[in-house]
Nucleic acid binder design. Structure first.
Lengths: 254, 254
DNA sequence: GCAAAAGTGTTGGAAATACACCCATGC
DNA sequence: GCATGGGTGTATTTCCAACACTTTTGC
């Protein structure tokens, strides 16, 4: 059944999709003190790949991205950004060509797959706890893997992930990513650990607290009931209105 | 003769170039107190367009950009950067379809032109005085036009220019663009006027001087012999070694 | 001398840093 | 009590914006 779907998908691709352009999304989340990327484990290969796909002939590239991320994560409201086009020669869907499905395809379909592809890189920031990872028809598994310990991937997906991280890191100055990566309610320490993870450097506790609160985009909630042997920290959430207003006028955090 | 070249170019395009992907370069320069963009005036239309083109099937996208900028400017050593892929539906080479050349084309060639195109936006920073603008075969003129007074353009080229400016403006923090936009030797005031142009805001003279010199990427040269009724300012040039070193570690200017 | 632009100094306030100090809690 | 993590205070330093002062030059 699935097999048939794959064959159908590949057979019809050349009629439905733009030729030569694909799309890969670096879906980033944060859990257990690590920035993680959602990767798919391909059937028939011991390789991982970014979620991605093709762009329908009558579809905006942004819309195609939204659709892909929604399919893999189940999320509807998304923060995502295009960050780079990867256009080296020699990029193609080689891993599909060698698959067991390729043999059965028509010449048109095979030619379409064999052509060179440029790929548009997007990154998306999501709350890991809200995501139910969903493999696509070409993959057998779907998992959150820490970005600093990537497994073997197809093509240049390693480079795509690293470029994405660089962009997120630079965005941190203008854009408080916590809103998209943390659960609705969180403590300042949790936010600090996220920042330390992204920037890969320790920060002073007291100064971080003052600095982030002075941005005036957080709302303090009731105290956290924790089991820890220490003072219970406050919970905060983002004030979406103030947040929207601030990012338009630019914040300098770092 | 030219007419024949155009027909040949369009007729063969579908065999030589990647389908569905084009490339536009926002070539920026600075003169007479304005940031200027190199635009081409198309034959048969009263519209301007960015220098651009297609990507050969066996050519890196970056290499194609380099080739295009070199052809339009004559420059060999270039600073350029990819900044965005424009991927809305409905983008195509409509202006070419209606041209007098389109009628004579084969069905294959016409179909290739009629398809939807996504386009990769690049910006390049050049020294205007070193450039000899060179129209391409589809254009009758080639001129430096101030970015805040753009003429009517084809497609979304207006948006592409404005997006590019935004990127350059944000880069100013990490990247002292003066090296690429100013002549070899310049005064601090000239550099300040450039910054004021890009950021569209006045800056304090004394503070600008101290700030830019503290970056430690400029070398002071002999005095400028000026005809002005005032103290002759020093000339400076960029210290390329220090410059390269600094931009890798990031400078915070603004 | 005077106007104009350049180079440099000064100064008050803001912001960043590196801590120190208490607080609440579970064991 | 005490270890642990949280919230806040503070002294020091650094930085920055605003403006003043001086220098050089052509008229």
């Amino acid at each position: 059944m699935i097999e048939k779907k794959i064959s159908e998908y590949l057979e019809n691709a050349h009629e439905i999709f733009l030729p030569g352009v694909s799309l890969d999304v670096v879906i980033l989340g944060y859990s257990e003190n690590a920035i993680r990327v959602l990767l798919l484990k391909l059937k028939e290969y011991n390789l991982w790949a970014l979620p991605g796909g093709f762009i329908a002939k009558n579809e905006d590239v942004d819309a195609a991205t939204h659709k892909i991320v929604k399919e893999r994560t189940g999320l509807e409201k998304l923060y995502f950004n295009q960050f780079h086009l990867f256009g080296k020669t020699g990029r193609n869907a080689s891993f599909l060509q060698e698959s067991s499905h390729a043999a059965k395809l028509s010449a048109d379909a095979r030619n379409w797959l064999n052509q060179r592809f440029v790929t548009v890189g997007y990154f998306a920031l999501v709350r890991i706890d809200q995501v139910v990872p969903q493999p696509d028809i070409l993959s057998e598994a779907c998992d959150w893997l820490p970005v600093d310990q990537l497994p073997a991937t197809i093509l240049d997906h390693h480079e795509i992930v690293n470029t994405a991280i660089g962009h997120v890191r630079r965005q941190l100055n203008y854009f408080p990513v916590g809103l998209n990566l943390l659960p609705e309610r969180f403590t300042i320490s949790e936010l600090q650990r996220l920042y330390e993870c992204i920037l890969n450097q320790k920060m002073d506790r007291g100064n971080f607290q003052r600095k982030i609160l002075k941005l005036d985009i957080l709302v303090r909630l009731e105290k956290l009931k924790t089991g820890g042997a220490h003072k219970a920290p406050y919970l905060y959430r983002f004030d979406r209105d103030k947040y929207q207003h601030k990012i338009q006028h630019g914040i300098g955090f770092i």
